[in-house]
Each structure stands twice: as C-alpha cells, then as structure tokens.
Amino acid sequence: MMLIPCPHCGPRAQSEFIYERTVDSVVLLDAPSQEAMTKLFTRNNPRGVDDEIWRHTYGCRAWMILTRHRVTNEISGCRAIGPEALP
C-alpha cells in the first residue's frame, strides 16, 4: 500500500484514496469525437512514469495529480487541482 503525499493533508495511506484515471485519458469537454474516443479506448500504458488523477476520498476529498512510476511505485510529485489550485 502506497504512501501518497496529499498536497493538503501530507503523506497518507493509499487506502484513504481512490484512483480515477490517467491524465492522458481525460476527455476534455470540447474534445472532438475522434480525439475523445482515442483517449478513451487507446490509452497509453507506459512502463515508467505517468500522471494519474487521484482523490483523497477518506480525507480532504480533494482531487490531485500524482506522478508515479508504474513499476517501482516511486512517487515524484503530487499537486492539487480544482478551483482552489487555479492561478
């Protein structure tokens, strides 16, 4: 079980979080149909670092982007997203 550095709460056990999807699979609201389907159905599965969307469901409930190595589980970053994180 990973230790996830929540940008709001600090390091917490993975069991407090849910995984949503990889960032590269996000379908933006204005994505053309072809691009949306490519994102949904032909996703990357890199053997290496990837950006993932997680939520601290049993904590602050905020969403975040976790940068994780998919083989070693090494976490190289975790940043907040949402209205509060807007510049």
Partner: peptide, 14 residues
C-alpha cells in the same frame, strides 16, 4: 457524487 465532483473539480474549475 464522484462523477459530479470530478467534473466540477477537474474539468470545470473555472
């Protein structure tokens, strides 16, 4: 609830 939160927080923060 998760879907609405995701859409609001990730897709529509503005």
């Amino acid at each position: 609830a998760t879907h609405i939160s995701y859409v609001r927080q990730y897709l529509c923060p503005h």
